[in-house]
Design a protein around this nucleic acid. Sequence first.
DNA 1: CTGCATCCGCAACGATACTG
DNA 2: CAGTATCGTTGCGGATGCAG
Lengths: 120, 120
Amino acid sequence: MHIESTVCEDPKDVYSAACPCRNMLDLLANKWSALALGALEEGPQRFGALRARLQGVSPKMLTQTLRRLEDHGLVHRDVYPEVPLRVEYSLTPLGRDANVPLAHLRTWVERNIARFPDQG
Amino acid sequence: MHIESTVCEDPKDVYSAACPCRNMLDLLANKWSALALGALEEGPQRFGALRARLQGVSPKMLTQTLRRLEDHGLVHRDVYPEVPLRVEYSLTPLGRDANVPLAHLRTWVERNIARFPDQG
DNA sequence: CTGCATCCGCAACGATACTG
DNA sequence: CAGTATCGTTGCGGATGCAG
């Protein structure tokens, strides 16, 4: 159900389907975005480095994720027309800020993994 | 790529494809899970109430999300064999804890929505 | 009436091969 | 090296139907 056209009454309620917040939550609250932003927290990285860090990601999904983050102002993309070609991704100030709650989530998972019934 | 069979070397690295943490991150870091857990933070809720709160969710996705959360010990499901039937969902202690970082994420989005280039 | 299982069309995902 | 093209598969999302 896409109600993008409808205007959001309260622009600060993620539970509203029409609220822009919903799109932003969707952007941040997914596996590859959360991991990509986390990886970039350690400094600017090249495409290949990110691909190695986010084990199991396909080039297509990585490109798609990075482009989406770039379009929304969370990630900056620098192209160096060298040989071989070099492309570096880095966090924008907004991306750095968004990383704070995401880092909480990542570390919470790592620290509480043992509490889940289907994991030792 | 499903490398579930492979054993995870470091059981605390979300960046490892084979790490259980990856599955947990995937479970929590998605739109409907984040919203459902947030809604349940306000107290036990019935299926219909949750459906009304998570605007735009289909009954199927809501069921699927709640079941998945229940299977992983984040949500508790109580069935009252009344007429009409009543089913109440509530958070487990683990679910309440998981909600902390998710709440950070939700509130961060609501508070920083104006900073995104494609939103006011 | 509430909750949920089934079926199906379609979009998103994922792996591989290939191009600038 | 950094992606794009292509294709098979998976999963979402809506409609329908059924049980309690």
